[in-house]
Simulated scan of single mutants.
Amino acid sequence: MKLLCICDPSLYTSPLQDVPTTYQYFAQHDQIELFHAPAEWVNDPHQVQAAVVPQFLTYDQFLQLDTLPRSRYALSEFDLVFCRRLKPFPPGYLDILGQWSQQVRFVNDPVSKQEQMQPDFLAKIAGPYIPDTLITSEFEDAYRFLEQHQTIVAKRSNSCGGRGVFKIWREAGQFWVDNSLTGTRDFSTFERVMGYLMGNVPEPLQLVRYLENVTAGDKRVVVVNGEIYGAYLRQSRTGYWVNNVSVDGDCALAEVTPEEQEAIAGTVGAYCDRNLHTLGYDFLLDNDGIWKISEINAGNIGGFARLQTLTGKPICDRLTNWMLDYARNLKPSERA
């Protein structure tokens, strides 16, 4: 299989992260010929510049992949494209990939990815399985939601690792907003809060009731084509409300509860029907002790290499065997 992986190596600061590890695994696999392209090379709707990845790839070599000699390839030369680019996506990136999808098969279809990134998509697909949620860019609606729940979380769609997630509450006559990257800020009016959260992005925010049990951890369940590969719990070492590993989270193997299995079964078909096959379900513990969906990630989801380390099971083999079958059994022009 000729596999094209898209990522930006400089964004991965540890050799233990999922992308460097899976790159190394794919490079050594005897049924895979691995090619690499960073997002900046995604600039032509009909062809791609790509570099051949060496078979025995060290982490230092991974960091230097963008400097390797590159050649131009017709998209039809590849059997499968696996996008491992972290959000935020550059302007026009998904649009060009959408044109590619008419010529080559993707692990996760970029046209459907654009649909999935819309702020209201999760609420439409997973409404019964998520906490109280409001999708809005309107000041008055957002303020009523804050008044109702006292503490809320605002999420931006084109972000990852907790960077676009903000905790909002009112205290001592001021409005407070906390973010793992920018820290805590106070505002005299809620109108200024909304201006800060919206920035120059016109799309609505996803507002969610804050869950008091968030310090119990953020559970990632890795799902491929409807099959649960396993789960692990990310938990902040300092008790911070954001549990991402990119902040200060540690990971431990976790069980998938019956309620989580039900939530996955009730939602995964909508993603598979859209050719979104590798999914990272994130669950948070609600006040009633039930784990609720906080996100369903369908972009560059992590967890394959981490699950393999935590379980000692050949998770990367399982993923690769599915990818080989998927590339072999479906024609690039076939789309749901």
Rank of each mutant, 00 (worst) to 15 (best):
Q103T: 11
S112E: 10
T151D: 09
P119I: 00
V104G: 05
Q28I: 11
H46G: 06
P45A: 13
I125K: 08
F121N: 02
L134S: 08
V111D: 01
V104R: 09
W41Y: 14
A142C: 09
E40N: 07
I32K: 05
K124F: 13
T22Y: 12
D120R: 10
F82S: 05
D120I: 01
I135D: 08
I6R: 07
D132P: 14
D109I: 01
A50N: 00
L63M: 02
D95E: 14
Q28H: 10
C83Y: 02
P91E: 04
V52H: 07
V107Q: 08
R84L: 11
V42M: 05
P69W: 11
A27R: 08
A50Y: 03
T67D: 09
R85E: 11
L68P: 08
I152Y: 04
S10M: 12
I125D: 04
D141I: 05
H149W: 15
D18K: 01
T13S: 14
D79H: 10
T21M: 04
Y143N: 01
H36K: 07
F121S: 04
E40D: 15
Q31T: 14
K113M: 13
W41G: 01
M117S: 06
Q116P: 00
V52T: 11
P128R: 12
P69Y: 10
H149M: 01
I32C: 02
C7L: 15
F56N: 14
N43L: 07
E147H: 06
F145N: 03
Q24M: 15
S10R: 09
T133N: 09
L122H: 11
